[in-house]
Design a protein around this nucleic acid. Structure first.
Length: 419
RNA sequence: CGGGGUGUGGUGUAACGGCUAACAUUCCUGUUUUGGGAACAGGCGACUCCGGGUUCGAAUCCCGGCACCCCGACCA
């Protein structure tokens, strides 16, 4: 992973004007600050700074998935028609948001919009005994959905990057045990990326094999969901299952619930045998009897998560990245054209990189202090360190948190002691 | 997919049916400046989304298409 980056090498530039074709805050800020580029409606490229953030989110998720037994792999983007016909999800009448294309010989092929079929099909080759289970493979992958209408910047795209884990268990009890573990892992993830205080485990409609699924919903006006939160229990109910009967079953009291607009940043789902049955995914138990594998799926959209963080954490000047997923820890600014200042800043940059501290170095010579400050605020790196004539006269460098107004002067030792 | 709106230099905007499509920003040159998008001077950059039509004349009006945005529907 890149530790240091010089701004003279970073080709992106900040913009003063909001893009005319974006309304959502996340898209406005991320485009102005140079994190993403809009290719078309619902399709964005990640520029160097944006990719840094995405990679950090990916690392956090990977750690949590590995912690609960996840094992990473990567399924193909091009998907076989035959495989999807087994679960009856190839037909456009069943799934209407497929992106499909053709081989030269005329055969049809799909661009993956989810992974249940791919995993079931692959694991059919490897799972045959109770000794093979449980297993928890997962993907980071680009997914395509032919949405009729995309919206909200990177919160809902036609192409997006996600993590999908699938659990393969011997029985319900084993499945439930993992399902509960996954809830904790998910909570950790949202906590780590800085939106834990706004994110609620939410009961949502389940499907064929379970009464409920669980969503992780983050409070933001940019969201599309409505949930009812019980603060005392720190859990919520999605509007789609908000009925008197269900509230009673779950032990919610209506008068304790607060309605909020939220965005679904993750969800976990019990699949039962919905896919293992059509794929004939079975194992032999200790008695030699065949049983269907019990499955679950666990998804997080990384772009949406990144967009949500921006929606939730920003001010009038720009983005405020949590340190955990900021593109860099430090934004080092050299002010003025004086070569001695740039030499000093350049040495400090080298020291920071040598210590493994991630730093974006604004080494531009011909840019005013005010413009550098404005850029730093917009980009939103947690610590700003200024090297200038004034700071050197005062005895060192000025360090300031993005969230604070004033900075303070520190020498090199004090600076490193803080980081 | 229903309804509404918008397409003009890289970006953001302006222009009555009528002069060489204007302004700001970005970018380039130079001078000055360097702690909150600084100043001055000069310069580059546009098939006004595409295709038709009306007109002496179209960025402007009409028709068709495409793209983008918003509301709704939809959303393993």
């Amino acid at each position: 992973m890149t530790i240091g980056m010089k701004q003279t090498q970073l080709f992106t530039k900040t913009k003063k004007e909001n893009p005319a074709d974006e309304v959502s805050l996340n898209a406005e800020l991320l485009i102005k600050a140079g994190f993403i580029h809009k290719e078309m409606a619902g399709v964005y490229s990640y520029l160097p700074l944006g990719l840094k953030v995405l990679n950090k989110i990916e690392t956090i998720i990977r750690e949590e998935m590995d912690n609960i037994g996840g094992i990473e792999m990567r399924t193909s983007v091009l998907q076989s028609k035959e495989v999807w016909e087994k679960s009856n999800r190839w037909d456009d009448k069943v799934v209407d948001n497929w992106f499909k294309t053709q081989f030269k010989n005329g055969g049809e092929v799909g661009l993956s919009f989810t992974n249940e079929e791919a995993y079931s099909n692959i694991l059919k080759q490897y799972v045959s005994s109770y000794k093979d289970l449980p297993i928890y493979p997962y993907d980071f992958k680009t997914i395509f959905r032919n949405e009729i209408r995309s919206k909200s910047g990177i919160m809902r795209g036609r192409e997006f990057y996600w993590k999908a884990l699938y659990s393969f268990s011997k029985n319900e009890a084993e499945h439930n045990e993992f399902y509960e573990k996954s809830k904790i892992a998910y909570k950790n993830i949202f906590q780590k990326v800085g939106i834990g205080h706004l994110t609620y485990l939410t009961f949502a409609s389940g499907g064929t094999f379970s009464k409920f699924s669980h969503e992780f919903q983050t409070i933001t006006s940019a969201g599309e969901d409505t949930i009812y939160i019980d603060e005392s229990k720190a859990i919520a109910v999605n509007k789609e299952v908000y009925t008197d009967e269900i509230l009673e079953n779950l032990g919610f009291k209506k008068e304790n619930l607060i309605e909020k607009t939220t965005v679904e940043v993750g969800n976990i789902f019990s699949l039962g045998t919905k896919f293992s049955a059509p794929f004939d995914l079975k194992y032999k138990d200790e008695k030699g009897e065949e049983n269907l594998v019990i499955m679950g799926c666990y998804g997080i959209g990384l772009g949406r998560l990144m967009g949500t963080v921006v929606e939730v954490l920003s001010d009038g000047k720009g983005i405020i990245w949590p340190e955990s997923i900021a593109p860099f820890k430090i934004h080092l600014l050299a002010l003025g054209e004086d070569e001695s200042i740039h030499k000093e800043a350049s040495d400090l940059y080298a020291d920071l990189v040598a210590k493994g501290i991630e730093v974006l170095f604004d080494d531009r010579h011909d840019v005013n202090a005010g413009e550098k400050f404005a850029d730093a605020d917009l980009i939103g790196i947690p610590y700003r360190v200024v090297v200038s004539k004034r700071s050197l006269a005062d005895g060192g460098y000025e360090i300031k948190k993005r969230t604070e107004e004033g900075g303070k002067i520190v020498n090199k030792e004090e600076l490193f002691a803080q980081l």
